[in-house]
């Protein structure tokens, strides 16, 4: 009786989830627009130093809306430009990681036997590294900079996708339409393309979105530690790293890039939540 009567609560939750989708979508579009803007227009050259105009506070000079840093570079331009490297690194890394992870998961699920055990155990091993330790190790191996960051984040993203695909395929083997398809002798490739892909795609999209949020967090952390994107390139984490020398006197140096990071991570997280509801829960 209780679940029959709970439709009002359910509708409330649905409204809340819709708001997730709208908020998340809005924020991610904003970040994407920022990135596009960097190709069309920027108030200043992000790397142009202007030693006469160091530490101009926000609002002090209309030409520099968010102020300038220790080299007199325009902070707003650097934030706009920084979105490029953050998004580029994160998208490439998550794309590679998800591809590798999904493939490994699919192989493990279809092959079964010892190969499957080896793959899934290695995934367990990758999952066991605490926090960003694995990412830092990859940086040590590949080297600092964009390639290192991509490798670090990419490897980090393999386990969640591998596990997702693996368990989804195993679960769906019992679904009737897949049993039926197998019973009339469908080819493996067709089975994968026609039946598993539509089943997997919504989950993969949701996971991908949420992972972008996590990737931004790792990328900015690495850059903040000086292990990610290297100067003089602009990146949000790097800007915060550079701000460390002077932020006690000029706190505004750290505000802009931090807000940019928080909003983009929040945006992708919320979008992931919203998509999860839209694509997965409503279907079931």
């Amino acid at each position: 009786m209780r679940c029959k009567a709970s439709d009002s609560v359910a509708s409330k939750i649905r409204i809340k989830k819709k708001y997730h989708l709208i908020m998340g979508g809005g924020l991610t579009v904003l970040v994407a627009a920022l990135c596009l803007l960097s190709f069309i227009y920027m108030p200043h050259n992000p790397n142009e130093m202007n030693l006469g105009l160091r530490f101009v506070g926000p609002g002090q000079n209309p030409a520099f809306l968010l102020g300038t840093d220790n080299f007199g570079r325009d902070i707003l331009s650097r934030i706009i430009y920084g979105s490029r490297s953050v998004l580029l690194v994160c998208f490439v890394a998550v794309a590679l990681g998800s591809l590798a992870g999904s493939l490994l998961g699919a192989i493990a699920a279809i092959a079964k036997g010892p190969l499957s055990a080896v793959i899934m155990r290695s995934i367990d091993g990758l999952m066991a590294f605490p926090g960003i330790l694995l990412a830092m190790m990859m940086v040590a191996a590949v080297g600092k900079g964009q390639e290192g960051a991509v490798a670090a984040i990419g490897v980090f993203m393999i386990p969640p996708f591998a596990r997702l695909v693996y368990s989804l395929i195993l679960d769906s083997e019992n679904l009737l339409f897949i049993k039926a398809a197998k019973s009339y002798g469908i080819s493996r490739r067709r089975l994968l393309a026609k039946h598993y892909l539509p089943l997997l795609l919504p989950r993969l999209i949701t996971q991908f979105t949420a992972c972008i949020g996590a990737a931004i967090m790792i990328e900015t952390s690495l850059s903040f530690l000086g292990l990610g994107i290297q100067p003089p390139n602009a990146s949000w984490g790097l800007m915060l790293n550079e701000a460390r020398q002077n932020f006690l006197q000029y706190p505004y140096l750290a505000v802009g890039p931090g807000v940019a990071i928080a909003l983009s991570v929040l945006g992708f997280n919320l979008l992931g939540d919203g998509l999860n509801d839209l694509l997965i829960r409503r279907r079931s």
Binding site: M1, A5, S6, D7, S8, V9, S11
Partner: peptide, 9 residues
């Protein structure tokens, strides 16, 4: 009644 006004008793 439920919150949405359905009458149960």
């Amino acid at each position: 009644k439920t919150g949405s006004g359905r009458v149960l008793v």
